[in-house]
Computed example of a mutant assay.
Amino acid sequence: MNRRTVPILLCSIIAAGMAHGSNGNTLPLRFDAVLSGSEEIPAPVTTSMSGQAGFEFNPDETVMSFVLALTNGVNVTGIQLHCGPVGAPGPAIVPLLNAIQGSWDGTLQVQSTITGANIIQGVDCVSTIGRNIATLPDLAAAMRDGNIFVNVSSAAFPEGEIRGQAQVSSGDLILLSLTGTPDSVARVPLQIGGESGTVVRIVTESPVTVISQPSGFNPPLREFPSSSFNPPLRDMSTFPSSGLNPP
C-alpha cells in the first residue's frame, strides 16, 4: 500500500529552548522524539509508519505543549508517553491523544497541551526508571534523564508499532498553522476538541493500486461471438477482370 507523505503545515513561535526551571536553575525544557518500528521492543517492527514529536514545558513546568506528526498509519489505536529507558519497556504514563475515537489510517498531525491532570496516577515508574511521576515537574525531570518515550499502538501491534525516546533539544517548538485552507481534497480541516485546545488534522488517503505489465505481455486476440458476427462475403464478380494483381 503506497501513500504520499503529506507535508506538515507549520508556523514558528517564539519559544526558548532553554529556560529557568521551577527550582531556579537553568534547565532544558524542549525535547524531540523520532519514532520508528526499529525502536520497538522486545523485537523491532517492520512498518512503513513513522513519526516525529516535539515537547516544550513552560518555565514553571505547569504546562507542556506538544506537536506530533505520524505518516502511513494503518489502524492506529493509541499514542502515549511511557516511562522507560532506551531499549527497555515501561508503562504508559500520559495519553497524548483522546480526541479521536476508534482507529484511523493515513497521516495524523496533532498538537495539544498537557497538565498534571493528564498524568495517569498510581503508575509504577519506580521499577523502570527509579522515579515516581505524579506531577508535570516529575515528567520533565524524567525527560531530562532520557527515561520517557513515545509509543504508538495499532490493531496489528497493540503493544506498539513505532516508538521514540524523548531527547533534549535546543530548537524552538514548531506549531501547526491554524489558518489557511487545506492543501489536499483528502485533508480534513483542523478539528478543535476538548478544553485542552487539542488541534487535530487527519489525512486519509485511498490506497494506490499499481498494476505492473509483465515483461512477456502478449494479450490474446479478440474473439468475436460466432452468433453475432457474420460479415457478408464479397461477390467475386464485382472485382474488375483486369488490373487486379494482389501481391
Rank of each mutant, 00 (worst) to 15 (best):
R4H: 14
T5A: 08
L10F: 13
A15S: 13
A19L: 04
H20S: 08
N23M: 10
G24K: 02
T26L: 13
R30I: 00
D32Y: 06
L35D: 03
E40N: 12
P42S: 13
P42G: 01
P42H: 08
T46C: 04
T46D: 11
T46P: 00
S50W: 11
F66Q: 04
L70A: 09
N72R: 12
V74K: 12
T77K: 09
G78F: 00
Q80F: 09
G84M: 03
I93H: 00
L97Q: 12
N98T: 15
I100T: 08
Q101E: 15
Q101M: 07
G102E: 04
S103M: 06
T107W: 01
V110Y: 11
I114T: 11
G116E: 12
N118A: 11
I120S: 04
G122H: 00
G122D: 08
S127E: 02
R131K: 15
T135V: 02
G146F: 02
N151R: 12
S153P: 04
P158L: 07
E161N: 06
E161G: 02
G164T: 10
Q165D: 06
D172H: 01
L173N: 00
T179C: 02
D183Q: 13
D183V: 10
R187I: 02
E195Y: 04
E195N: 11
E195S: 15
V200I: 15
R201C: 14
R201L: 06
I202F: 07
V210A: 02
Q213R: 11
P214D: 06
N218W: 03
P225A: 11
P225G: 10
P231H: 08
P240Y: 09
S242I: 12
P247C: 01
P247W: 13
